[in-house]
Write a protein that binds this DNA or RNA. Structure first.
Length: 266
DNA sequence: TAGGCCATCTGGTCCT
DNA sequence: AGGACCAGATGGCCTA
């Protein structure tokens, strides 16, 4: 074991994995290029990490035509090393993408903070996306209400947040706005722009993730948030410290619902 | 010391 | 045939 793990990063965040320090770069451009098939041009001598393997006979050259059964023990060993190296690189790319995901997560980051585990990162990311989608929906409704208020003044008061045709018909038509304003700082901030949480939380760069406080949960996500993924069904649960994930404030917008049907490849 | 998390190796399967 | 992807196995490191 450890045939060539000299410069590979194990454990904590690898220094050379944080390729893209740009906060908005969800995945590094390197990874994206790799998965768009551009890496061959980007890195001609790929899979030669530490020089202990990948001898002079690269993949596709030399003994390519030989049957695998005819390979000598050394050739098999070399083949095995090449495969191992590729697999290692693949996992490193995966970890790099995971680091990119961690960078944009509303989670306290720093040398003194333990890195999010992979499973925690994925769970938190999912909840984060759902929460942002929920906030966006509420924001849209709020904007619609603000700009449509003048036209609706002559009409009798009624719940203003009506569902669109695409919404699930079984969901009750509830006055969500007050509840949403109490639960979502984003929605509340639009109503009271003078005391916007964005201003309270400091300047936000265009692509930087919102601060944890702005998002409404603690600097370190509660364990329950990480352990419990948001249910996709009609039933819901509340996460302590998490901006309400329930169906009231999170009407499962079609944008997120469609995410689950996206082809994930292979 | 047990358990969690991780990196790595390895063999199988599928795709190009 | 070679590479990508996947999952199981294994062993190391760290923390409670």
């Amino acid at each position: 074991m450890d045939s060539d793990t000299g410069s590979t990063c194990s454990r904590s965040s690898s220094p050379d994995l944080a390729v893209d320090s740009a906060v908005g770069a969800f995945f590094s451009s390197k990874v994206l290029r790799a998965y768009r098939g551009e890496e061959a041009a980007l890195r001609p001598d790929r899979d030669r990490p530490e020089g202990t393997e990948e001898g002079p006979q690269g993949a596709g050259s030399g003994g390519k035509s030989r049957n695998r059964a005819e390979l000598s023990k050394d050739d098999l060993q070399e083949l095995r090393l090449r495969v191992n190296s590729r697999e290692r690189k693949r996992m490193h790319d995966l970890n790099q993408a995971m680091d990119g995901l961690r960078e944009v997560m509303p989670y306290a980051q720093g040398p003194s903070v333990r890195k999010l585990s992979k499973i925690s990162t994925l769970l938190l990311a999912r909840n984060y996306i759902l929460m942002l989608s929920s906030s966006l929906e509420e924001m849209k409704k709020l904007v619609g209400e603000v700009y449509g208020a003048g036209a609706a003044q002559s009409r009798p008061a009624r719940p203003v947040l009506t569902r669109t045709a695409a919404s699930p018909p079984q969901l009750p038509q509830l006055p969500l706005l007050p509840l949403a304003q109490s639960l979502h700082p984003l929605a509340a901030s639009a109503a009271a722009a003078s005391t916007s949480p964005l201003q309270q939380g400091g300047a936000q760069t265009p692509h930087s993730p919102p601060s944890a406080g702005y998002l409404g949960f603690h600097a370190t996500p509660l364990p329950s948030l990480l352990k419990e993924p948001l249910p996709l069904s009609a039933s819901y649960r509340h996460f302590p410290g998490m901006p309400c994930p329930c169906a009231l404030c999170q009407p499962l917008p079609t944008s997120t619902a469609s995410l689950h049907s996206l082809p994930m490849g292979k």
